[in-house]
């Protein structure tokens, strides 16, 4: 009965989709979107592991004895809010990068950095020659 592992497979596919976006996309904001997808895959992993077949939500009521595991719920609900705060931090960094480079394209930024370094070394060689 391999269908019992279906939840893990969904998580793996989502996780790899997120990882692919992080690695392959050039746009910094899209990379953060990829990170978010990856993060959500982890959330689904935790929550699906906490599910007990036939159980209900972990709010105690008379006459019910089978509940899903509350611990992953606690971990993930705080992780979601922490996740949005850290996402905002990532976006803030992207905004500052844009203000400094006028671009959020990874390769353009790398090209500008190489150009800067080349010019700097040119300047230092020029100033070094007279002395």
């Amino acid at each position: 009965m391999l269908t019992g592992l279906f939840n893990y497979w969904v998580v793996i596919i989502l996780m790899m989709a997120g990882l692919y976006v992080v690695m392959a996309s050039r746009h910094l904001v899209k990379k953060i979107v990829g990170l978010n997808i990856f993060q959500t895959a982890v959330f689904i992993l935790f929550i699906s592991m906490g599910k007990v077949g036939g159980g209900t939500a972990p709010i105690l009521v008379e006459g019910t004895t089978l509940y899903s595991n509350p611990l992953p719920h606690v971990l993930i609900l705080t992780a979601i809010v922490v996740g949005v705060a850290t996402t905002a931090l990532g976006l803030a960094i992207a905004v500052r990068v844009y203000e400094a480079y006028d671009s959020v394209d990874e390769e353009d930024i790398a090209a500008m950095d190489t150009e800067d370094r080349r010019q700097e070394s040119a300047v230092t060689t020029v100033t070094n020659t007279p002395s």
Binding site: F43, I47, G50, K51, V52, H73, I76, L77, I80
Partner: peptide, 12 residues
């Protein structure tokens, strides 16, 4: 999350 009984998480 709602289907998986995690009502608090679904809410968040």
């Amino acid at each position: 999350f709602m289907v998986l009984d995690a009502v608090d998480v679904a809410f968040t």
